[in-house]
Design a protein around this nucleic acid. Structure first.
Lengths: 210, 210
DNA sequence: TGAAAATGAATGATCGTTCATTTATTTTAC
DNA sequence: GTAAAATAAATGAACGATCATTCATTTTCA
């Protein structure tokens, strides 16, 4: 099974390669601007062959978006199980979110740019997952507010504000730039902690040096 | 000008109606998913007629986006001329940005969703305007940091963070919701002020009541 | 009267999808 | 283990629909 892998593994894997090609093209040009023919060409196959793996173009988009949301949420579940008990949960969440969104640029980009190209039924499905993810942060903020650690007037509004702020990072970050991923993580983590007025922040940042 | 308005003002105004129709449709379905025929139908005219006013479909998009950026920047110029001298400039900017973006939903939405559908030349033009606008906030933050009013490690990063946070509002706000525009404005203004650690914030928000 | 605007029809290209057929691969039977 | 049967995947061509754009002609309006 492992020794003999032909130069062109005709057998299967095609569905996976379609997903990869579609993801790349959707991220670059947008769902509506990408044709089935372009995807097929990127895969190296005839257009009709795609229909052995996906019933419609819309299903490719749905698959990509649902897979991303599932992966995002289960990645957080795995991360949360790993973090020490005394860690500030907001800090952990923010850093996780940034790291994840910088790693999975294309998935993230497609998942929040192509919402309007989802048919109503699929829109519902993705929307539900999205709300599940946002609820994670809202709960963190609510608990922090309840224990007087954070100063949050409206946890739902703060959730959207923080997520919008963080999710915007990949739109301007580029690997060659002056700031590395870790520096960006630190800068945003500090911004968020201050925005919710964390009174027990471990790191005091930027003691003003005149 | 106000008394005689025919049922179908065939005369002119067509270019303006094309812009309005295209804006509405682009915002709803995306540039690539909207056809010239749909725009023409919305205007109530044959497809060919649009070409008396715009050379290509791309030019309609370019017009909309450049007009929006110009209007945004000149609206801020007008606003700035109006605000009292002792007003905190960051607070003024944030409130202006929120108000403007909630009013001009469609223009804003199109202008940051359709960037990738601009041909390179037009992308450059819009990108330049965008940087001009961001520079306004960066300068405010720089000056605040220089006078020790704000705590900002990196003004450019903070600019992007704040703008992403604010620009996300229209994507979840809907007029019938539990929060009015003014309340949202206040909540976000507070979030931003705390995020840059404003030490001289006029309003202290949400004294925790147990 | 003359210029601008709109029509209606047409252009060639490309769209998502289908389908009969061929080619690979896997399963079954001996 | 090998031949036959069943299944899966890919091809290549075609479907009707729709795309952005053009243009000769007619209508509208100053």
């Amino acid at each position: 099974m492992e020794a003999a892998r032909q130069q062109t593994p005709k057998g299967s894997q095609t569905a996976a390669r379609v997903r990869a090609a579609a993801l790349k093209l959707f991220a670059r040009h947008g769902y509506a601007a990408v044709s089935i023919r372009q995807i097929a060409q990127e895969v190296g196959v005839q257009p009709g062959a795609l229909y052995n793996h996906f019933p419609t173009k819309q299903d490719i988009l749905k698959d990509l978006m649902l897979a991303h949301m599932d992966d995002l949420i289960s990645s957080w579940d795995a991360e949360r199980a790993r973090i020490p008990a005394k860690t500030d949960p907001l800090d952990a969440f923010v850093r996780f979110h940034i790291r994840y969104h910088m790693e999975k640029r294309d998935e993230v980009f497609v998942s929040y740019m192509e919402l309007r190209n989802l048919e109503p039924e699929n829109y519902q499905l993705v929307g539900a997952e999205r709300r599940r993810y946002e609820a994670i942060l809202t709960e963190i903020l609510d608990q922090g507010a309840a224990s007087d650690q954070y100063m949050v007037e409206d946890a739902k509004v703060a959730t959207r504000a923080v997520i919008a702020m963080l999710t915007g990072i990949p739109s301007w970050y580029q690997p060659g730039g002056p700031l590395g991923p870790r520096e960006i993580e630190d800068l945003y983590a500090a911004l968020v902690q201050r925005s919710v007025g964390n009174t027990t922040s471990t790191k005091t940042i930027g003691e003003r040096v005149s």
